[in-house]
Simulated scan of single mutants.
Amino acid sequence: MLQKYTHIIWDWNGTLLDDVDWCVTTINIIRKKNGLPVFESVEEYHSVFGFPIKDYYLRAGFDFEKVSFEKLAVEYIDLYHGDGCNFQLFPDAKKVLSKFQARGIRQVILSASERSNLLSQVVPLGIAPYFDEILGISDIYATSKVDIGKAYMNRTKPERALLIGDTTHDKQVADSLGVDCVLVATGHQSKRVLQEAAVVMDCLEDVANLLYIE
């Protein structure tokens, strides 16, 4: 996969940000509160998680006639960003970001997170200078990542772009944007599921090696 990419489009959660365990903890708090069994493992969580987020909540057992999706989404975000969160990057994230930057590759984050919440994670981790833009959605209901990506592509017209993500939805986004895609098996879906959709690497450093960046 030796390509001279001019732009890297990064997903955030589960790709650069190592938040899977915290996401399991967060959704388990809400499941327990609503009388649902908790996820016993990341593997069980993987078997349910996906996009659209509203469908994920249904697969997780929530009944929108008893509690609305909007209420659940707000509660989830409040818990996710509340006491106990200690967000960290994957161990190889900064190294890979630095390598891409040193090669003159333009980098952006494209996330389904609400933008102000996204910035509250990215900035304290000290990696904002690696990115030309940090792109998030305008509300917490996670519905229009593709639209934001298309607006970015139309505005910047990158010569050759690669999207790096951790879910099959990221591959769908890449296809909608007309860009290449590599997925990492460190995030919110299992490697088995990801391999049905795209090229899959075990970690970010493997992605860099795939692109012949040493």
Score class of each variant (00 low, 15 high):
127 I>H: 05
73 A>I: 00
36 L>F: 02
72 L>D: 00
177 L>V: 08
42 V>A: 03
151 A>W: 02
101 Q>I: 05
78 D>T: 09
194 L>V: 05
86 N>Y: 06
141 Y>W: 06
22 W>P: 06
49 F>L: 08
2 L>V: 12
26 T>V: 07
142 A>Y: 13
68 S>V: 00
106 R>A: 11
40 E>Y: 12
206 D>R: 13
35 G>H: 01
131 F>I: 10
15 T>I: 04
63 D>Q: 04
199 V>W: 12
46 H>L: 05
67 V>M: 00
191 K>Y: 05
121 Q>W: 05
3 Q>V: 12
104 G>D: 04
164 I>C: 11
169 H>R: 11
25 T>D: 07
197 A>S: 15
201 M>P: 08
139 D>S: 10
141 Y>A: 01
40 E>N: 13
26 T>A: 07
26 T>E: 00
121 Q>D: 09
18 D>L: 03
174 A>Q: 08
213 I>K: 07
209 N>Y: 13
72 L>V: 00
194 L>K: 05
176 S>W: 05
43 E>G: 10
110 L>P: 05
8 I>R: 11
131 F>W: 09
116 S>N: 14
158 P>V: 07
23 C>N: 10
51 F>G: 07
16 L>P: 05
166 D>P: 08
110 L>K: 12
124 P>F: 06
123 V>T: 14
197 A>Q: 12
175 D>T: 05
56 Y>D: 09
11 D>P: 05
166 D>W: 07
102 A>W: 02
196 E>N: 14
144 S>K: 15
190 S>C: 08
62 F>I: 00
46 H>P: 09
171 K>D: 06
32 K>R: 13
1 M>L: 15
124 P>R: 14
183 L>R: 10
172 Q>W: 10
144 S>Y: 09
38 V>S: 15
91 P>N: 00
152 Y>A: 14
120 S>N: 07
137 I>K: 14
213 I>D: 04
15 T>R: 13
109 I>F: 03
209 N>R: 15
185 A>F: 02
105 I>M: 06
70 E>G: 01
145 K>L: 06
202 D>A: 11
171 K>T: 09
158 P>H: 10
